[in-house]
Design a binder for these strands. Sequence first.
DNA 1: CGACTATTGCGAACCATTTGCAATTATAGT
DNA 2: ACTATAATTGCAAATGGTTCGCAATAGTCG
Lengths: 129, 129
Amino acid sequence: MTEYLARVRQAGCRLTKARRAIIAYLQAHNEPQTAASVHRGLRGMRTDLASVYRTLELLERLGVVNRESDGKTAAYAFADRHHHHIVCRGCHRKACLPCALRLPSPRGFSAVQHQVVLTGVCASCALSA
Amino acid sequence: MTEYLARVRQAGCRLTKARRAIIAYLQAHNEPQTAASVHRGLRGMRTDLASVYRTLELLERLGVVNRESDGKTAAYAFADRHHHHIVCRGCHRKACLPCALRLPSPRGFSAVQHQVVLTGVCASCALSA
DNA sequence: CGACTATTGCGAACCATTTGCAATTATAGT
DNA sequence: ACTATAATTGCAAATGGTTCGCAATAGTCG
């Protein structure tokens, strides 16, 4: 049982087939996945898209995954694979970046978590502009 | 004519009443505003919500405003008022933070813009936990 | 002022996400 | 193992933010 499944269990939630499959799917993919792509990846089982959403929301609540949103569609990835992405405003392709955030610890706040959304114009889009 | 209006003009776009009003509304409010709240703020005129969206999209394309999204609803604020927020996971109150992001310039990308979503636990929520 | 074209308002479409509910299934206790 | 019970699911329909097509309107330039 992976640590992720254990966290679900510790929260008093059940380890259903759908939850196992969704976690396994996320583990098998490095890039953040949308609910739709997770659902597509599980098309062998008859798992409803709504259940995918419910599971992802649960995992986010437990702090297992992070939800990243570009404003349209949300994408989810394991929190312990923490890094950032930059999205090209031209072609929408993504690149990964190590986390280089050095924030002065915000006064009075503890357990701070962050999410960074970067956009830019990639080299090939800059040329064709 | 404010600098913002000038930027619109320089881009070869017309200075319509709706655009003036939307820019004025954003200037009058420090916190990022949603399309819906801008629209509500303009209820004196008969400006359509779709036009609000179109204008905000234009301003974003021109780099005049930033679009910030918490995953559900997008909010817009002038790019030159750039700063960040931290939200308490307990009481959901917000605090403002200066921007202290110092990213190594991502290889090959230009015109990089960023958005940071921070959450934490504020002092009073930490006590009551 | 008049012509030309960008922009608007309106309505409807779109799409991601959420919700209500009856049927199913994981789990704890026996 | 078996059962009781409550959590979870699938389905279908609703929701809500955002976008689009198009005819009417209104900036802007000469």
